[in-house]
């Protein structure tokens, strides 16, 4: 029953967001696109957290998705937004498929630190590579989307709509997955890997699959963010970016696929407001928000929604 509710809620929220695409003010479109893009990365992180793993290196896939999208335009001259997004997903998924072979064997702090290390390797490469714009990065400008030319000023609204559709598709897929046998199996792995193996299932295979899916979602989010911002730089792969994803994941909680997007929205809103009105203390503001959250809502913002639902 709650599964249907989530599906309905996801559909309604996405429909409303989509309806707002032509009319919302530019600044809101930009803020929401970034929030949804980051929410997608966090959705992947939630998938990993269900098996008990926290990656402090999802910036790796966020950065890969962003650079793959941008390089397609700068190097190959392909300036279609949709192709850029697909390239971002494919690149991130391919790298995750390779690194996952190693990382899916590690747990706890070792997994967290190794994933962080790989993201910092990418950061280092990007910073040192003058061909890739070094610390400044470079701009990208999509001229079309799925073959349709983008008029001036429309681009960002189209990318926003694409982000909404991606959130709906990814949210639904992850929700179905977590509601299935494999969602329960992920929790089982978090609780007791030995028993899972003694029941005849491969823990490695499940962790690996979740890791690759999380990487692909990271790439998707990175490509969307790059299109929205129109610029990529090594910061996308930096550890503070990865930390931001973990922050948003904890902020939202892992209870529902809508939680990452709610949390990412709150995060972006707080950041935008705080950096506008209190530019020197916005990180402190976030820190205080986090502290209060851990003290009073240890299961994340989503527990507010869940509680209200239980009350009615």
């Amino acid at each position: 029953m709650s599964r249907d509710r989530t599906t309905v809620a996801l559909a309604v929220v996405c429909a409303c967001l989509l309806a707002a695409a032509p009319v919302a003010p530019q600044w809101l479109v930009f803020l929401l696109t970034l929030a949804l893009a980051k929410g997608l990365v966090v959705l992947g992180l939630v998938l990993l957290m269900r098996t008990g793993l926290v990656s402090f290196g999802q910036g790796l896939y966020f950065g890969l998705g962003a650079y793959a999208a941008a390089l397609l335009g700068a190097r190959a001259g392909i300036l279609d937004g949709l192709v850029m997004i697909v390239a971002g997903i494919a690149t991130a998924a391919a790298v995750a498929a390779a690194l996952g072979l190693l990382l899916a064997r590690y747990r706890d702090i070792f997994f967290a630190m190794l994933s962080l290390a790989f993201s910092m390797i990418l950061y280092g490469l990007l910073v040192k590579s003058s061909a890739l714009g070094s610390t400044d990065g470079f701009n990208l400008h999509a001229k079309s989307f799925a073959g349709f030319a983008l008029a001036d000023g429309v681009g960002r609204r189209v990318f926003y709509a694409a982000a909404v559709i991606a959130v709906f598709a990814a949210g639904l897929a992850v929700h179905r997955y977590l509601a299935s046998h494999y969602g329960r199996l992920a929790t089982a792995i978090r609780d007791n890997e030995l028993r899972v193996e003694y029941l005849g299932a491969s823990v490695f295979r499940i962790v690996y699959a979740n890791y690759v899916a999380a990487g692909a979602l990271g790439g998707l989010g990175g490509a969307l963010a790059a299109l929205a911002v129109g610029h990529v730089d090594p910061e996308t792969a930096y550890w503070t970016t990865s930390g931001e994803f973990v922050f948003i994941a904890v902020l939202g909680g892992t209870g529902n696929v809508l939680a990452p997007f709610l949390a990412a929205g709150v995060f972006e809103a707080v950041r935008t407001l705080a950096s506008q009105y209190a530019p020197n203390v916005w990180q402190m503001t976030l820190g205080i928000v986090m502290l209060l959250l851990i003290l009073f809502l240890p299961a994340g913002l989503w527990s507010l929604v869940a509680k209200k639902r239980a009350g009615t």
Binding site: R184, L185, T187, A188, D191, N192, R195, L199, A201
Partner: peptide
Amino acid sequence: QLFNTLSARENLLVAVGIVAA
């Protein structure tokens, strides 16, 4: 060796699901 955060029924559901898969 059980899945401590899952209910007794969910523990068995995991096992049944693994066998079916």
